[in-house]
Amino acid sequence: MRHRHALLSLVSLTLLAACRESKVESYRVPKEKPEELPPGMAAGGSPGAPAAPGSMDMASTTVPTASGSDLTWTAPAHWKAKPAAAMRKGSFTVPGDNGAEADLSITAFPGDVGGELANLNRWRGQIQLAPLSEGDLRGVTTRIEQHGLTFIVVDFANTDAAGPRRILGAIVPYNNATWFFKLTGPDALVAREKPAFLAFLQTISAPAPAAP
């Protein structure tokens, strides 16, 4: 009988192996810094959701778009396309000298995503610049109308930091969504890329409406 008990307990242990516990947990953690992406929505989320082990990047996912129609663009030849990550419509690496790199991200979100001022201040926070007030907006933004779209273009640089950084950005409301085009990286590289970025903005257009 003693042995039978031993066998039974072993079988029970084997059966237990099939169980995994799911329980609610609660804990307190220090506040996290806002995430880099996306502007206007970042507040401690996790856009870099993990990929399966061994993979280079997370699976590309379709980002919410209005009626399935996306803005289109043509990137300069020297920008290297990266696989689109979650919520990114497009992603490019802009190479510079001595291994320096800037990142061009294209994201789109429903609605106004907190408004122009909140988004621009979020960008400023990412390069440790003080936030702007509503009254300052006119002085720092350039509005460009083209292809039926309105571009709010900004150029923010923090040259006081140990590693000077710059953000060139454009916010484009389109079809009940807000599109963000942001080039961020070392000050010198991003400043050098400004003409290419502005030329890139000129290639952005909405798809032509379908023929009736």
Binding site: E25, Y27, R28
Partner: peptide, 19 residues
């Protein structure tokens, strides 16, 4: 579900997606 009221800390309740 995060209570962000405290200026220094976040109080988190994490519910596994299995539930």
């Amino acid at each position: 579900i995060i209570n962000t009221t405290d200026p220094k800390f976040d109080d988190v309740v994490a519910i596994p997606d299995q539930l």
